[in-house]
Write a protein that binds this DNA or RNA. Sequence first.
DNA 1: ATGTGTGCAAAAGCTTTGCAATAAA
DNA 2: TTTATTGCAAAGCTTTTGCACACAT
Lengths: 161, 161
Amino acid sequence: MKSNNRNSSVARCHHRDQDSAFKSSVELLKNAGLKLTLPRQTLLQAITQHDGPFSAEDIFASCKKLSRKSAGDLVTIYRSLATFSDISILTRCDFGDGTVRYELLEQDGSHHHHVICTSCKTVEPISFCVVEGQEQIIEQMGYSRLTHKLEFFGLCPSCSD
Amino acid sequence: MKSNNRNSSVARCHHRDQDSAFKSSVELLKNAGLKLTLPRQTLLQAITQHDGPFSAEDIFASCKKLSRKSAGDLVTIYRSLATFSDISILTRCDFGDGTVRYELLEQDGSHHHHVICTSCKTVEPISFCVVEGQEQIIEQMGYSRLTHKLEFFGLCPSCSD
DNA sequence: ATGTGTGCAAAAGCTTTGCAATAAA
DNA sequence: TTTATTGCAAAGCTTTTGCACACAT
């Protein structure tokens, strides 16, 4: 993953982010009246440490690395990811390859999109988004509660040559 | 589907479009050195008559309506849809619900996006697209051969109230 | 004639469900 | 205690694959 190419100061800063992301996730879980079980703790830890979108299998592997015994079952992962998505800890993102992916939802309400390399499958976040303006136009067409999915596909700098 | 609510003059005009779409599809098929078999004929007919994105099952049903015997097999549909997508008769669109959909590709090179009602699943095309500008920015980041997927989700006018 | 395309059956993902056992509050 | 959550096994769906047969060119 591109965003791992970082110097240590950024990495340190990253750790503080992970902590706060973990804490606010636990917060959201408790506010929703859900139980903080061991598998969920491990999963939240894995999620907040993970960079970018991940599949159920991806994060299951991360969980097992964190703790072989409290990683839970893959089925539990599937159920928890759905639950976490319901209470806005996660957001689903779909790259159209038959596998559902999730990503930690930014708690400041902001969002971003991705460029996925069609060759090496590297995922890079895109910070800018020009789509909100279009949502307003669609609202004027009578739609409400709009969301959008936008993903770019192409050859990344390395794969371009 | 929204776009079926049309008057007869538009419908007539629509038929001419279907014809030319069918013919240019056959053209593309032959230019690619592929054979125009009976199942493929039926499928192309169903596709060019169909409005908006469809799944393999969707279009298989349409094929069977057209001709019970030359509708082919569902497996053949899957294989043909992939083939047609390869030679740019169709384009894949993914609404993130675990089912791949295809749509007739506009032969003038233009494209459009969709609003999908999260309640009744109605799909409406969106003619405008603000995303091309962003692709140029991403190209400046070193990417090439860019494409994008953009879908909107929300409550359609009827489901909004 | 020749090689592409088809049909059937079976397999292969990924994801969901049922249910008894378990653990958090 | 009580209800949510888990684990296991099994099922569900969509999509893909293997292979002998059939058909378009």
